[in-house]
């Protein structure tokens, strides 16, 4: 997936994380009273749904200044704010460099049940 989002390569890491947090806070539904914690499970808790994912990927691509290969996405990569930041904003452009997520690939074939 490629992005038309203005790149912020070299931007301060904390700025990028705050932009990510701000985006999630705007989009997430049914946040708990204590607010958006770094370890709040975003997809599992249904605070974000599948409809948010393409936009989130575009946002991250803009913040990193580099495209994300969706075929390399792995289970847990978008688990919570901390994981997303570690996976996509902290370790540089190589998504394997800062993996803090599960590495369980899902298989897909043409005749799934």
């Amino acid at each position: 997936m490629s992005s038309d989002h203005p790149g912020r390569v070299g931007a301060d890491r904390s700025v990028n994380v705050e932009m990510l947090r701000s985006w999630v806070a705007r989009k997430a539904k049914d946040l708990p009273p204590e607010g958006l914690a770094d370890d709040l499970p975003l997809l599992e808790g249904r605070h974000l749904t599948s409809l948010h994912i393409p936009e989130l990927i575009l946002l991250l691509e803009g913040l990193r200044g580099e495209a994300i290969d969706v075929e390399r996405l792995q289970a847990g990569d978008f688990r919570d704010l901390r994981t997303i930041a570690a996976r996509f904003l902290v370790g540089g452009p190589d998504p394997d460099a800062a993996c803090a997520a599960e590495t369980v690939p899902a298989r897909s074939r043409g005749a799934s049940l």
Binding site: I53, P54, V70, D77, V104, R107, S112
Partner: peptide, 28 residues
């Protein structure tokens, strides 16, 4: 038992496929 995704058309463009990769909901 293995995690799996449904065979979506043009999966990289489909939010449901991306969601299945990120939050697996299918096991075979």
């Amino acid at each position: 038992w293995e995690l799996a995704t449904d065979p979506f058309f043009q999966p990289a463009r489909n939010p449901k496929y991306l969601a299945q990769r990120l939050q697996p909901t299918k096991r075979e």
